[in-house]
């Protein structure tokens, strides 16, 4: 499918990821007082064999959220944080962090949900301003699990009812700290055409 997207359209998706996540990361910086560096977004086909590396092993512990986006550009917005990065967020925003999975409680989960809520909300606002699209999201749901289980579940849900899956992925880091976050937007392929028409490409 990605091969069917011409270079201009791929660039447009990357640029949307960049602008959308730029406002999302600004919102996260406002919350935490920490500056985040954004990497250039990747646009790729999320095939059954491919997970972009979110951590060193498919069985390493990650936390993440997913939220359904409805409106003119339907899809799933997801955030994934390796456990060590989530610990950094918890320490900044909650003042403490669980030492392992057994200590993970509702408070810590809600911190990650809230971060996702604000970031995805800003991402969608950025997109709305650029495209005039009406976009709204469901509350993010939380998961903590091995990376492969979380990624594959996310992928299967987004894949449901369509044959191929496109991912717009952006990585954000804190250069001097142990922090890496991943944002994925998995649009419904059918809704892409409307986006391209709106952008006139």
């Amino acid at each position: 499918m990605i091969t069917e997207l011409n270079a201009l359209r791929q660039d447009a998706l990357r640029e949307l990821g960049n602008i959308g996540l730029g406002s999302a990361v600004t919102a996260l910086s406002d919350m935490t007082g920490v500056l985040f560096a954004l990497e250039v977004p990747e646009v790729y086909e999320l095939g059954t064999g491919r997970f972009s590396r979110v951590c060193h092993s498919p069985e390493c512990l990650v936390v993440g959220t997913v939220a359904r986006v409805e409106g003119d550009w339907t899809g799933e917005g997801a955030f994934i944080f390796p456990w060590e990065s989530a610990v950094t967020l918890w320490q900044i925003l909650a003042g403490s962090a669980p030492s392992d999975l057994s200590e993970l409680n509702e408070l810590y989960e809600s911190v990650i949900r809230e971060v996702s809520n604000i970031m995805l909300g800003s991402f969608l606002n950025g997109l709305s301003q650029m495209t005039g699209f009406t976009l709204h999201m469901e509350p993010p749901v939380f998961a903590a699990d091995m990376a492969a289980a979380l990624m594959s579940s996310l992928m299967v849900e987004a894949l449901y009812g369509q044959r191929e899956l496109l991912a717009i992925q952006t990585t954000f880091r804190v250069p001097e700290r142990e922090f890496q976050g991943f944002f994925l937007y998995l649009p419904e392929v059918g809704s892409l055409e409307k986006l391209f028409q709106t952008l006139g490409i």
Binding site: V66, R68, E138, V141, A149, S153, L154, E157, Y160
Partner: peptide, 15 residues
């Protein structure tokens, strides 16, 4: 067949 993301409103119960 687990539901990794819990309490989803629009859950598809795929597992």
């Amino acid at each position: 067949g687990a539901e990794v993301f819990q309490n989803r409103e629009s859950t598809l119960r795929i597992g």
